[in-house]
Amino acid sequence: MNGRNRTDLQPGMMVDIVLKADQRTGKLTRGIVKDLLTKSATHPHGIKVRLTDGQVGRVQVIHKTDK
Rank of each mutant, 00 (worst) to 15 (best):
L9E: 05
I32M: 09
K39Q: 14
I17P: 04
V61R: 15
I47L: 10
L28C: 01
V59I: 10
G46I: 04
I62S: 04
R6S: 07
I62M: 11
G54T: 00
Q60R: 15
P44F: 05
R24F: 09
R24A: 15
K64R: 14
T65I: 14
V56E: 15
I17E: 03
K27T: 12
R24Q: 15
T25E: 11
R24T: 14
M13K: 15
T29V: 13
T52F: 00
Q60P: 02
K27W: 02
M13P: 05
K64I: 11
I62E: 12
D8H: 13
R6E: 06
D8Y: 10
G3I: 07
K34D: 15
D16I: 06
R50H: 01
L36W: 01
V59M: 11
L19D: 00
K64F: 12
V15A: 04
G46S: 09
N2I: 13
I17Y: 01
G26E: 01
Q60V: 11
M14L: 15
V56F: 03
K27Y: 04
Q60A: 06
G31Q: 01
V49L: 06
M1C: 11
K67H: 12
M13L: 15
V15C: 03
V49E: 07
I32F: 04
K64V: 12
H43Y: 12
D16G: 03
L36H: 02
D66W: 12
Q55T: 10
A41K: 10
H43V: 00
H43M: 07
T42M: 11
I32T: 15
H43P: 01
V49N: 08
D35C: 05
T7R: 13
R6W: 05
M1V: 14
V61S: 05
L19I: 03
T25N: 09
D8R: 03
N5Q: 13
G54I: 00
V15N: 01
D16L: 05
L9R: 07
H45Q: 14
R30H: 04
L51K: 01
H63G: 02
I47N: 08
L28S: 03
R4W: 09
V59R: 08
H45A: 10
I32P: 02
L37C: 07
I32L: 06
M13N: 09
R30I: 00
G57H: 01
G12N: 09
S40I: 05
V15S: 05
M1P: 11
K64W: 12
V49Y: 06
H63R: 13
